[in-house]
Design a protein around this nucleic acid. Sequence first.
DNA 1: CAAATATAGTAAGATATTCTGTCTATATTG
DNA 2: CAATATAGACAGAATATCTTACTATATTTG
Lengths: 155, 155
Amino acid sequence: MTSTPKKYYQIAQEGRLIGALLRVPYLAVVDGTYNGLRDAGFDDLTHAHLTVFQHIDSRKGSRLIDLAESAQITKQSMGYLIDYLESQGYVERVPDERDGRARLIRLTARGQALHATALNLVRDVEVRWRAHLGSERMDNLLDALKDLTTLIEGK
Amino acid sequence: MTSTPKKYYQIAQEGRLIGALLRVPYLAVVDGTYNGLRDAGFDDLTHAHLTVFQHIDSRKGSRLIDLAESAQITKQSMGYLIDYLESQGYVERVPDERDGRARLIRLTARGQALHATALNLVRDVEVRWRAHLGSERMDNLLDALKDLTTLIEGK
DNA sequence: CAAATATAGTAAGATATTCTGTCTATATTG
DNA sequence: CAATATAGACAGAATATCTTACTATATTTG
């Protein structure tokens, strides 16, 4: 054997700091979604490609530059991802009515199918976790995470 | 201007699913730690290098192969990261008494300094979040995350 | 309104990261 | 002790992402 596969972060050792505690569930969602999509036949994508679906406006489409910004990569890198997704039939580029320089990246039917599948996979995880924690604790967890998100994004 | 920098995931649109809610705080910790280390003078590292510090046994050292497994990359890739960290004086390779084939990757004094700084940075975040949420909600959050971690890693 | 500047996107090439395949040395096991 | 497994290193390929530079269209401003 020559290798081992893919996963990610952590930060503590002792009583497990907040970084590690967020990391494990977060990566469980990410990897679970990735694997679920693969099992559902969407097996021609990498994690990087999925970031596009996570940031795109699934109805109206999004500009390349906006996708790049929210995914925090260069527009050139996002262009590279989009080229591939376009070649695989997940997205299409259409002119943006409101700006002759811009184009909208829009989900095709296949892209919409992937998007819907991904949302269902995440919701499944949420349901399993709710069953494990109980509804009250799960609601409290979501509330606390929302508050932190507001704090972080707030400014 | 030609570019934009680095960050990561998400998954919902509507009421924000669990993936997005975990992602924002998680990345806040990761990026906050990365930036804090940079500001503290540890500015010759990438996120990938930090994974080593997140997985290494800071006292006894760890084997390459174990680091690779917990970071979920190939041993060759981990070797590449370790080579760099060794060249920068963060770690050293010493023979493993108990296995002639193996060597232990150990933190040098500089590596220990980085490790301690990183732990403090994460603890600072935890303190700020505790102040924001209040102690009871923070404790509940940590408990829920621990339970989910156990569920996920449990089997 | 013409000139200057900014923005959206593409193109080309460099660099960095991670992988696959292979090899050596040491351990373990039947 | 022969066969097999494990820890790690080496070489090279593949891939992802970045930097620099360019075109076309928009916006701003003197």
